[in-house]
Lab assay of single mutants.
Amino acid sequence: KPRVVLAPEEKEALKRAYQQKPYPSPKTIEDLATQLNLKTSTVINWFHNYRSRIRR
């Protein structure tokens, strides 16, 4: 699969959402995906990867 490249404003929106709730509910994930015009799997993976990046 080709890698999804996020626009800077999409990254900022995801980071703001992460600061509010690092483990978002499925509803929140769905809303974010719709709002940013991304797949839910992309949003889920971003949160998973961002949490692991923060832990390093």
Rank of each mutant, 00 (worst) to 15 (best):
I29Q: 14
S52H: 12
T28W: 15
R16N: 09
L6S: 03
R16L: 09
A17Y: 06
H48Q: 10
K11L: 15
T42Y: 06
Y50K: 04
E30A: 14
P24K: 09
P22G: 04
P26R: 12
K39N: 08
E9H: 15
R56T: 14
A13T: 13
T42D: 10
K27L: 00
L36G: 01
P22H: 02
L32H: 01
T28H: 08
E9C: 00
W46T: 01
E12H: 04
Q19A: 15
N37M: 06
R55S: 12
T40K: 12
F47D: 02
S52C: 08
A33W: 14
K1N: 06
L6C: 11
K11V: 15
A17G: 07
R53K: 03
K21V: 07
E10H: 14
K1I: 14
D31H: 02
A33M: 15
E10A: 14
L38W: 06
T34Y: 05
F47G: 03
T34M: 15
Q35A: 12
R56G: 10
Q20A: 10
A7P: 09
E12M: 09
R51L: 14
L32N: 04
L36S: 01
T34L: 09
Q19H: 10
T28G: 10
A17C: 08
R55G: 07
E9S: 09
R53C: 09
L38G: 03
A17T: 03
R16K: 14
N37R: 15
N45W: 07
K39D: 13
N45C: 00
R56S: 08
A13H: 01
T34F: 01
R53T: 07
R16V: 09
E10Q: 15
Y18V: 10
I44F: 12
K39P: 12
N49G: 04
Q19T: 13
T42K: 14
R3G: 12
L14H: 03
P24D: 02
A7S: 11
E12A: 05
Y50A: 12
S41A: 11
T28Y: 02
P26M: 15
D31S: 10
Q35D: 01
K1F: 07
S41G: 07
K1G: 01
Q20H: 09
E30N: 00
S25A: 06
P8R: 07
H48C: 03
P26G: 10
K27R: 07
S52A: 11
K1W: 01
S41E: 13
N45E: 13
N45Q: 10
A13I: 15
T28I: 02
N37P: 01
E9I: 03
S41F: 03
R55M: 14
D31C: 02
P24H: 00
E30V: 10
T42I: 01
Q20P: 07
T28V: 12
Q20I: 04
L36W: 05
S25R: 09
Q35L: 09
R56W: 01
Q20R: 08
Y18A: 08
L38C: 07
R51P: 00
L38T: 06
K11I: 13
T42P: 00
K1L: 00
A7H: 14
N49I: 01
N37Q: 13
K27Q: 09
N49C: 02
Q35C: 06
L36H: 02
L36Y: 03
W46I: 01
E10C: 01
F47C: 02
L32F: 02
K15P: 03
N37S: 11
R55W: 12
T40S: 09
A13G: 05
Y18C: 06
P26L: 10
Y50N: 01
H48F: 00
P2Y: 15
V4W: 01
D31Q: 11
L38Y: 04
L38F: 03
P8K: 13
Y18Q: 07
R3D: 04
P26E: 03
H48D: 15
A33Y: 08
E10N: 14
T40F: 13
N49Q: 05
K15R: 08
E9Q: 14
R53W: 11
